[in-house]
């Protein structure tokens, strides 16, 4: 039945303000990143050249375009530090996503098996840490992992180790921090996908002689695929550009892209190279981002 969509025209008017806002404060800044990544570094305040002045008219714009340079990208390719940062980011994100799936899936699955009364409570318990500060949650791990912290204390109390181990500034600590921080992002989409699953499908599989494990493998797992995809993207994309967790928990000998952007910007004050790194990061993520965007749009417009 096609009902008249009488809300359509006023609803379009509603788009104007947020649309203009996003164009001005989300899309335009990217043009500035791209332009900056093609500029030369200069000892100035702010530290770059050439200055691109729209008010100076078209001739100045064209002149400025002539001064754009690919030097920053050439630098990124020539210096293996940046290449390794890119590789490390992708590796860390892939490993973290796999770990998150391994840990998040059983939890989400167990949640769907709770009774109707307990499911909202379990859901809330998973969501609450997501609302508490990211920084605080990473900081909480420093308390536990430091040399004379609780983990070493517990391990020594149970005589697992004799001398305290160095947990901080290791990849183990970083993975712990990432898994800890992103776990709700993995559990929620998985739960949402599995919760909608029709229970009679598993009954049917069982009636047809499937063992529980086989029914899981043939029915539950394929049906939870949208959740797996959503959770994986929701974790993978931000982890590639993660800064806080590797900065506070991992060692400083191998950096991730997000850390190099931060370092170039705040420590070396090299805005052009920082922008070039950000562009590289964006290019790395463009595929996953488009996939995520499509998925999100489909999920939200299904009900509309």
């Amino acid at each position: 039945m096609s009902r008249p969509r009488i809300f359509t025209r006023p609803a379009r008017l509603a788009a104007i303000l947020p649309y203009a806002w996003l164009l001005a404060l989300f899309l335009t800044p990217f043009l500035f990143i791209i332009r900056m990544s093609l500029s030369m570094t200069a000892v100035a305040q702010p530290p770059y050249a050439p200055v691109f002045d729209i008010t100076a008219g078209w001739s100045a714009v064209i002149e400025a375009l002539g001064q754009l340079s690919g030097d920053n990208f050439a630098l990124l390719i020539s210096d293996s530090l940046y290449l390794f940062a890119g590789l490390r980011s992708l590796t860390v994100a892939a490993v973290s996503t796999a770990l998150l799936l391994l840990i998040g899936y059983p939890v989400a699955y167990a949640m769907t098996r709770l009774s109707r009364r307990w499911q909202p409570i379990a859901l809330m318990l998973v969501v609450v840490p997501f609302w508490t500060s990211f920084l605080i949650r990473v900081y909480a791990w420093i308390n536990i992992l430091q040399k004379d912290g609780l983990l070493n204390g517990a391990l020594r109390a149970f005589h697992v180790i004799e001398t305290p181990l160095a947990w901080l500034a290791t990849d183990t600590a970083m993975y712990l921090g990432i898994v800890y921080s992103y776990l709700p992002f993995m559990i929620l989409p998985l739960y949402a996908a599995m919760e909608k699953m029709d229970a009679s499908l598993i009954e049917a599989a069982a009636d047809l002689g499937c063992s529980r494990l086989k029914a899981f493998w043939l029915v539950t797992l394929p049906l939870s695929r949208p959740g797996i995809g959503a959770g994986a993207l929701l974790c993978f994309i931000p982890v590639v550009g993660e800064f806080v967790i590797p900065d506070l928990l991992a060692g400083s000998d191998r950096l991730m892209i997000g850390q190099t952007v931060w370092l170039e910007f705040f420590t070396n004050r090299d805005w052009s190279v920082a922008s070039a790194m950000a562009v590289v990061l964006l290019v790395l993520l463009i595929g996953p981002l488009l996939m995520y965007e499509k998925m999100q749009r489909r999920a939200l417009e299904r009900g509309a």
Partner: peptide, 28 residues
């Protein structure tokens, strides 16, 4: 706008700009 306005010019760009910041690394 997204759930009531139906199709409109630039809708894909709009929803793209709206969903991207959810996952886009904050350094960018």
């Amino acid at each position: 706008a997204l759930s009531r306005a139906g199709r409109f010019a630039g809708r894909t760009l709009f929803s793209g700009m709206l969903y991207a910041p959810l996952v886009l690394p904050e350094v960018i």
